[in-house]
Amino acid sequence: MNWKIPAALLVVALAYPLVFRGNFAINFGVLVLFFALIGQAWNIAGGFGGQLSFGHAVFFGTGAYCSTILQLKLGWSPWSGLAASAGAGALVGALIAALSFRFGLRGSYFALITLAFAEAFRILTNALEFTGGGVGLLLPLKRSALNFQFAERIGFYYTILALTAISIGIAIWLQRSRFGARLAAIRENEDAARALGIDTFREKVKVMALSGALCALGGTFYAQYYLYIDPAVVFGVDKSVEMLLVSMIGGTGTVYGPLIGSLLLTLVGEYTRAITDAQGLSLIIYGSLLILIIGFLPNGLVDLFKLRWRRKARA
């Protein structure tokens, strides 16, 4: 195992806010890590496990609402809320997986059912009173680290760095563990996996629970960072697409794909908005770039690195 890459990345990430102190730079770092986290959450189920979901927002929103409601109604600390939301995300993940896989849904049918669940959750939170309905929920401003509301953005930066590091650590573990090998087997050929003694139902439920838990952590972080959530944003299709996009652009089923994808997409997203005022132009650039990458690097940006390694190896 080569520990140099993760160690170097960690050093760079730890040093980044100390070198680039501006609010814009730190906010940029937070966004990159945030999308890398939820992209990795998607990647663990979709990339490693081969269970393509189109509705991961259901876990994201569950996390965001879980910790927020616990704070507002029961006065929980958001840090306990963070743990609770991971539990809730895992539970929802296991539940959706158990229902879908019990009835043998695979491939695009599974993708559609996850989308349906996300939409159902969005509509429910929109209609129910204790979730604040369509108006959403506003967290009162109480700046303190104990309250998961840092006076300095750098506090958020290191929090999301820790969460993202955990998600990448899990991805590294998946590459090297029996659970990961079983997921790869299921992704590649489910019948062969069953023949070799793998309880495919159980493993798929497990990976969805894991993915749901990580995604819910992202949801809680989002709620604490923006202090406001509403159903359309946290359960919306946009969130689901953002997650699978960073993963696909970077490279699905790889450890660093979501991070690379998030870095590029956040760069493009933030800077096209910064350099031009023309309405919609940033979206046009963003969209064209996506087409180019998917057209020329269908396995994601990690292929660029692999090509270089291969050339080096040959030379």
Binding site: D191, A195, G197
Partner: peptide, 22 residues
């Protein structure tokens, strides 16, 4: 199948089913 495999009986497939990318 997975329980039967764990009990000691395993099959191969006529049409080979490799984990192609592994």
């Amino acid at each position: 199948p997975h329980l039967i495999c764990r009990h000691g009986m395993v099959r191969t497939f006529q049409v080979t089913q490799p984990f192609a990318h592994l």
